[in-house]
């Protein structure tokens, strides 16, 4: 899957956008199967960009083109199909159902496409040390535990691109490595592209390109 960002500029940033940015008002291409790192201090619109690509925001100028088609013309069902089959995401705010158990949260995703078995889910949860917690409601979990549940959930579907928004912010070093390995494995299996937004450079992935949201000479 190829994602083109053409002259994007979120409306809230029109007044305050820096003159020079690696993304805003540029033409940027995320090639198929390419791993990209997006670096910027907080508050510069990393989450906004991911939400624009994912179709959750419409308040922007420019357009996103996925496999040659502008997402401006997408219908609700087109987005649903894209999110089921081609595009997966871990949002910064995780978007979990706090009143449901970890298992219910995972199964809500799993039952959509049935790409991953329950045994595989158990295996992933074991690796990340959250298996025991999955019977608790997400509202009672710590943020780091929720983050791991959300990462597992993002891997329970077919995808050609995976968007991650500061996915490791509340994980310890050990869990970061495990999570990174799981993500790498899933992307390689699916031959999928990866876009990770973070505060700074990280050592867990080998990136094909690094984009600076804020300045060009990073």
């Amino acid at each position: 899957m190829r994602i083109e960002l053409q002259q994007l500029l979120p409306e809230p940033l029109i007044e305050i956008a820096p003159k020079v940015s690696g993304i805003w008002q540029q033409n940027v291409v995320l090639e198929p199967s390419q791993w990209t790192q997006l670096v910027a201090p907080s508050g510069r619109g990393k989450s906004t960009l991911l939400n624009i690509i994912y179709g959750n925001r419409t308040d922007y100028q420019g357009q996103v083109i996925i496999d040659g088609n502008s997402t401006l013309k997408y219908t609700a069902d087109d987005w649903a199909a894209l999110r089921r089959e081609k595009l997966s995401v871990v949002f910064q705010d995780l978007r979990l159902f706090t009143n449901l158990t970890g298992w219910d949260n995972l199964l809500l995703k799993q039952q959509l496409t049935d790409t991953v078995t329950k045994e595989q889910i158990t295996e992933m949860a074991t690796k990340l040390g959250v298996l025991r917690l999955l019977d608790k409601t997400c509202g009672t979990m710590s943020y780091g535990e929720r983050q791991r549940v959300a990462i597992i959930r993002s891997l329970l579907q077919p995808f050609k691109y995976l968007l991650l928004d500061e996915p490791f912010s509340h994980l310890d070093e050990n869990n970061r490595q495990i999570a990174a390995d799981l993500i790498k494995e899933a992307c390689q299996q699916r031959n999928a592209g990866l876009l990770i937004a973070g505060l700074g450079a990280d050592k867990y992935f080998t990136y094909h390109q690094t984009l600076q949201l804020d300045e060009t000479n990073g």
């Binding site: 994912y54 959750n56 609700a76 069902d77 987005w79 649903a80 199909a81 894209l82 999110r83 089921r84 089959e85 995401v89 949002f91 978007r95 979990l96 159902f97 809500l108 995703k109 959509l112 579907q157």
Partner: peptide, 15 residues
């Protein structure tokens, strides 16, 4: 909020 999350997961609005 819940509807929003379900749509994020890829559920169809009609569903």
């Amino acid at each position: 909020e819940e509807i929003g999350i379900l749509l994020d997961l890829g559920y169809r609005p009609s569903e």
